[in-house]
Structure formats: structure tokens, C-alpha cells
């Protein structure tokens, strides 16, 4: 039990670290495409770690399934949102400007 607790805490801390890194990236990267990359990383990796950590703490499978579903839907949405944003940047040739 204690091993699961520790593993869960480690995963959540790892997720928080990735969230922090992606926030720094969002603020510091020079153009929109790079910053979008930082943001998508947060959705994929950081949320994944946090959700895995939270899944280890659940007692019923139903809650685990719901958490997994949240992650999968966020992955799909963030990938699609990132694609749409990048497409708009490319079409409008805004990649090198600071603001879109």
C-alpha cells in the first residue's frame, strides 16, 4: 500500500514539474509555434502523470476509467486545437510575430 502511495505522490510531483516547465516555456519561448509546443507538452505529459498518480489512489475501477477518459479526451482535444492553431498561423504567416 505504502509503495502505491509513494509512487502516486512521485507521479503527481513529476506532473507538477512538467506543468511548471511548460508554463515557463509558454512565457519564455520566442514565437507562437514554440509556445504552443510547450502547452501541448503539458497536456500530454504533465496531465498524464497527474492522472496516473490520481488513478493509483482510487479504490473503484469506475473512477479509474473516468480519469483515463479525461486524459484521452484532453489528448485528442489538445492535439486538434494545436493543429488548428498551427494551421491558422501557417496560413496567415504569423509564425514569427509575437501575437496572433
Amino acid at each position: 500500500m505504502i509503495v502505491l502511495e509513494l509512487l502516486s505522490a512521485f507521479l503527481i510531483c513529476l506532473g507538477i514539474f512538467f506543468f511548471f516547465a511548460s508554463a515557463v516555456g509558454l512565457l519564455r519561448f520566442p514565437d507562437t509555434l514554440c509556445r504552443m509546443h510547450a502547452l501541448a507538452k503539458a497536456d500530454n505529459l504533465a496531465l498524464g502523470c497527474v492522472i496516473m498518480g490520481a488513478m493509483l489512489r482510487q479504490t473503484d475501477l469506475y473512477a479509474v476509467g473516468k480519469l483515463l477518459l479525461i486524459w484521452v479526451v484532453t489528448l485528442l482535444s489538445s492535439a486538434t486545437g494545436g493543429f488548428l492553431l498551427a494551421q491558422r498561423i501557417r496560413r496567415k504567416n504569423l509564425a514569427l510575430e509575437r501575437d496572433i
Partner: peptide, 18 residues
Amino acid sequence: VKPPGPIFRFYMRIMTPV
């Protein structure tokens, strides 16, 4: 509006039933 491309279509195909 320009058509949003294949990835958006894939997303809609999965997400609409959801």
C-alpha cells in the same frame, strides 16, 4: 472560412458519439 483539415475531421468523427 477555410476547411479545417483532416485532423479536425478525425476529431469530430471520434468526439461526436462521445
